[in-house]
């Protein structure tokens, strides 16, 4: 029997917004898939582009960054910088024909438990459609 594919989505979540949002989703008993592997960061701008790449090449089926909505950054402007860096990584992936759909940036505030659950569900579904990341088994990386 073929084992059902359970994606792994490495998720860098900002401590002030998205991580708290994920907590809220939990305490509100909202269902979201176990595919989300949360890593708390102090700000979405802490996520160096190489974090995304390393997670992608290590075989994460998806990589998610969760940050505060534009204008709401705990450090005022961190998420604007995060957005630019994310745009660069996405563009690098696109220009080389790598699956940039495996990378996602989402704004989720501390009060948006339902949004967190929705993003987690929708993104997991999207990744399920893409299937397993080919980097997971590649030996020449």
């Amino acid at each position: 029997m073929k084992k059902e594919f359970t994606p792994r989505i490495t998720s860098f979540l900002c401590k002030w917004c998205s991580y708290t949002g994920a907590d809220l989703a939990g305490t509100a008993r909202l269902q979201y898939p176990t595919s989300i592997i949360p890593i708390q960061v102090m700000c979405s701008s802490r996520v160096d582009p190489v974090f995304l790449i390393k997670a992608f090449l290590n075989g994460s089926d998806g990589v998610l960054i969760g940050g505060c909505h534009p204008g709401d950054c705990h450090y005022e402007t961190g998420n604007y910088h995060a957005r630019r860096r994310f745009a660069i990584v996405k563009s690098v992936f696109d220009s080389l024909g790598l699956e940039s759909k495996r990378l996602k940036l989402s704004w989720i505030s501390a009060s948006e438990g339902p949004k967190f659950a929705r993003v987690a569900n929708e993104y997991t579904e999207e990744i399920m459609k893409l299937g397993e990341n080919p980097t997971r088994k590649s030996i020449f990386l």
Partner: peptide
């Protein structure tokens, strides 16, 4: 993976430098 390259991180280096 059953196998991996040594030293590792060949593609990582180039993708990283691109970003």
């Amino acid at each position: 993976r059953a196998a991996l390259r040594l030293p590792p991180d060949t593609i990582f280096f180039h993708l990283g430098r691109l970003t």
